[in-house]
Design a protein around this nucleic acid. Structure first.
Lengths: 165, 165
DNA sequence: CTTTTTTACACCTAGGTGCCAAAC
DNA sequence: GTGTTTGGCACCTAGGTGTAAAAA
């Protein structure tokens, strides 16, 4: 998932342990179509694949650890493959999603279910529509400009390629 | 770790779930020296870093799954860095190790500790001495010949490099 | 026809090799 | 001196990019 979800945390107990996790959840009950240049709801959502909790790989870690740096979920991966066995979040194309963020006080990942308190946060700015082809040039350009793996498509490289022909 | 530990399993219950794991354990209580062309014990072993259980990433899976293919632990990684936080097995250089292999009947990785039965196997042919520089040309050549990442050192590539000078 | 999905591609990042020289 | 460890290197595999064209 790019850009990655990045969070700055405060108010944790420095010496307590926390497990951090996110879940990609449907933002509404609709299926969308891209029709004549616009996203429009088009019927009821398809059956939703089982949701997979993505646990931040630093978990468990102290409040001190989490608060000392920007917490990045850049290793969260998405797929439309229902048979996926690599732990990716499985999404329906053409559906709208939003990220749920969880903070659980727990000393072990396996204790997460028994944590005394699990705080849940949802940020509206994390909403997106899952697609198989981009429909928005600004998104495309944002990815080319900032995703290291897309460096080959930046201006300089593209110009050079033309010059060499 | 190369070559990787690879096992063929039989006798599992096809429809029960199992968690598979390995642990790199000291083979004896000695520290070794490579002196005048030979490995010789030289004093008591250094304090052993905490052992880390490496759980096979397919876990948990059915007996059927494990028996249907060669089970490979090629993602097990080793380090001499005591501060490692990436889950590598932490070893003392110049010490001798052997692999312990565990089969636990369990539906979840987190249940491993409560598994009714944990079978332990140790194969003498998995023993090795941890080094920071090879002392055995046959090992070096075996790695060059068979490890894909060392392809650059194979005959053909090496010859080509000379020809081009 | 329009919309959505898949595939092959050149190009890039990330990181696993033994080698060598230097440091210890 | 001998034995052990580290860092930089060229070379490789593995896999993450958007593109374009084909397929559905």
């Amino acid at each position: 998932m790019f850009p990655a979800l990045r969070l700055r945390l405060s108010g944790l107990q420095p010496n307590s342990n926390y497990v951090l996790a996110v879940e990609v959840t449907p933002a509404d009950g609709a299926r969308y179509k891209f029709q004549s240049g616009r996203w429009t709801p088009a019927g009821k959502a398809d059956p939703e694949p089982p949701k997979r909790l993505y646990i931040h790989p630093d978990s468990p870690a102290t409040g001190q650890h989490w608060m000392a740096r920007l917490v990045s979920f850049h290793k969260l991966k998405l797929t439309n493959n229902l048979c996926d066995k690599q732990g990716y979040a499985v999404l329906n194309s053409m559906h709208r999603y939003v990220i749920n963020f969880y903070i659980a006080q727990a000393d072990q990942v396996s204790q997460l279910a028994f944590s005394r308190s699990i705080d849940t946060f949802q940020f509206a700015e994390t909403a997106f529509i899952a697609v198989t082809a981009y429909q928005n040039d600004k998104i495309t350009q944002l990815k080319i400009d900032h995703n290291p793996f897309a460096k080959g498509f930046r201006e300089a490289a593209a110009a050079l390629r033309k010059d060499c022909k």
